[in-house]
Structure formats: structure tokens, C-alpha cells
Design a protein around this nucleic acid. Structure first.
Lengths: 186, 186
DNA sequence: TACGGTGATTGCACAAGCTGTAATCACATC
DNA sequence: GATGTGATTACAGCTTGTGCAATCACCGTA
């Protein structure tokens, strides 16, 4: 007889996502979340630094995945190195989960505070990518610009990918976005 | 004999910036800010939606300025339209205020919550720029990519501009960043 | 079997951010 | 002189987030 039911963090995330989806982020309290997950407020804040973090459990492993992929890449151009890393991760973690990801993103996009947190995660990821590129070879400014450009294309692709009715893969949309970016900038 | 001292919002902003600079954002309470400005907490939250907003009073006028400049621009390429608008605004609002701007940015960069808010403002500005470009001619995706690319260059330039010892103008650094972006993307 | 360390969870008390509501009162307008 | 406007205030209350100490199943070791 275990002392507690397992997977507290995951139960909290599931409960939170359901409630945010139903009644919105601002209208649900941490008290409601922990009641649904059969835990206490203190436990919630042991697992997550604040109420928003509960929706970003996976972003750190995503970042590590991408950085590792870049470090082991052999692309010549820094932009291509980042893009191919994003392709790999897109295949591994997003495809065949379109519905779940789109729902989570809809919740985030519906609330300014969550959107800010998402932007913060993206900025941290951009910095990590820039550091990885910098370690590989180039100067810091080029690394920053390549990382930012790749993330810009990624964001454009992601927006399309989460549109209802869209059937193409994230990978294809990403390559399209990179092509568009090249013509728009060049 | 006026009933209240004038310019409540500006007094609050000044008091807040001083305190954040001295003791950090997290270690200063709204109670301290309003005490220094000789007002009450309720008045603070009448002027600013939350504690962070007090540092972003000018971002809305900045956005309007840039959007207006883009609308009245006659550049052919969307990227050039945004960049020249940013140049104009950089000259008008930033130059000869390097010290003040750098201090404010140092305060923001020192705190994750403030950094997130700054990212949110930048994202809103990017959207507004994309809308302005979209209204001028192009398709939405091109507008988004051009806006994002211009903001990326702007951010790279701004980072350099606020480095201690940097003497070049923001305008020059922006044009340099655009050139670098063209070579790393193209 | 006994025993002590580990670590996830909890209860409690409290600071701080933020909000709704109603009251005040100089100022402007007529 | 009457009246409305609008910025400020007082107050009461909810929610988020934190520090600290206590609990107690589980695990390794003797």
C-alpha cells in the first residue's frame, strides 16, 4: 500500500490543463487544481515555481534535446544546423500529437500571462541555441542572429501547424518557412 | 491650492525605477513605492495594471510611432520599410538618452518577471508591425517574417548599444545588424 | 527483525499582489 | 450657487507564493 498515489506532477498538470481549458486560466484557482488532483496547495508549489509553470513541464527536456542535436550536427551553415535540429525534434516530439499540442497552445494563447511565459521559454531556448552555435565555431553575434532566425521560422511554421484543417507536417511547414524567410530577408 | 500634487503616474514611475535600481525589483514592495511618491496602493493600481507595468509607460507611444512611420513609408521591400521606421524612431526617442535607457534596461534584464514583460511588449510590437505591413500590401506570412526579422536585428543592435563603452549610434548598429542578418540567412 | 536515513507530502502562519465598492472633495460648467 | 466629473482614498477580502517544522512509507544495512 503506497503512501501516496504516484505521479503527482503529472496529475497536477492534467488537472490544470483541463480546468484552464474549461473555465480559463484566470478563473481557476490553485485550490481547484489541487482539489481535482487530490493534493494540497503546498505540494503544487513544491513542484512548480508558480501557477503558470504547470503548463511548461516539458520545455526543459525539449531545450536539452535541441541543444544536443546542434552539438552533434555537421551542417556547415549555422542556420541550417539549427533548422535540422528543429526538424528532428519536431518529428520526435510533436507529430502524431497535433491535437494535444494545439489544445495546450490554445490555452496559452488565450491568456496574456501564459503567453508571456511562453515567450520567456522561447527566449531562453534561443539563448541556449546561440550558446551551442557559439561553442561550435562562429562569433556570438552570428550565433544569436542564426538562432533567432531559426526560431522565427519555427514560430511561423508552428502557427500554421496548429491551425484547424492544416494537414501538412511541422517539418514541411518549417522548411517552407525557412524558404520564405530567405526570400524575405535576402 | 490644488487638491493633489500633479503627475501621479510619472512620480510613481520615478520612485519605482529608483527603488528597483537600488534594491532590486523583488525586494521592493508597492507599499514602498507609493510611500516615496506620497500616494496610496490603490492609486498605484489605478494607474498600472500590475507592479511591472510601471516600467513600461512609454511602450505604447513607441509602438504607435513605429506603426505610423511604416504606414507612411515608401520602401519597396517590407524588411526595409520596417528597418527605416526603426531608424527614425531610434534617432527620435533613444539617442542622447543612452544612459537612462541603459539603466532602465539593466533593471529589466536583472529580473525574470520584468524580462518576460519586455518580451511581451516586443511581441505585441512585432504583431503591430506585421499588421501594418499586411495592410500595405503583402501576404500575412511575409509580413510576419519581415516584422520578426527586423525586430531580431533591432534586438541585436540594442544589446550592443547598451554595452558600456559602446559609442556608435543605435542607427548604425541597426544597419550593421541587418547586414549581418542578410549574410547569415541568405 | 530492528533501526536509522531519505524524500515526498502536509499544515500552518504570513507577506505581498491585486480587486470591488463606496466615499471624498477640488475643479469645471452652467 | 447648484451640479457633475474625475482623481484619489479607505477598507475589506481573495489569491498567489514562501518558510518552517512535522509526518511517515520506503530502502538499505546490520
Amino acid at each position: 500500500m503506497p503512501r501516496w498515489k504516484p505521479d503527482a506532477a503529472e496529475r497536477l498538470q492534467t488537472a490544470a490543463l483541463e480546468l484552464f481549458d474549461q473555465q480559463g486560466f484566470e478563473r481557476t484557482t490553485v485550490a481547484e487544481i489541487v482539489a481535482r488532483a487530490e493534493l494540497t496547495q503546498r505540494t503544487f508549489f513544491n513542484h512548480f515555481a508558480d501557477k503558470r509553470e504547470v503548463l511548461f513541464r516539458l520545455s526543459s527536456v525539449l531545450q536539452e534535446e535541441i541543444v544536443r542535436e546542434i552539438a552533434s550536427s555537421d551542417e556547415a551553415s549555422p542556420l541550417d544546423a539549427v533548422v535540422s535540429a528543429l526538424e528532428v525534434v519536431a518529428d520526435k516530439m510533436f507529430e502524431n500529437q497535433r491535437a494535444v499540442v494545439a489544445r495546450r497552445y490554445a490555452v496559452i494563447a488565450a491568456n496574456p500571462e501564459l503567453l508571456e511565459r511562453e515567450l520567456g521559454k522561447n527566449a531562453a531556448l534561443t539563448e541556449a541555441i546561440a550558446d551551442a552555435l557559439h561553442a561550435r565555431c562562429g562569433d556570438p553575434e552570428t550565433a544569436f542572429l542564426a538562432a533567432g532566425a531559426a526560431m522565427l521560422a519555427q514560430q511561423a511554421a508552428f502557427r500554421r501547424w496548429t491551425r484547424p484543417g492544416e494537414t501538412r507536417t511541422l517539418r514541411d511547414l518549417l522548411l517552407d518557412a525557412v524558404r520564405s524567410l530567405r526570400t524575405t530577408v535576402g
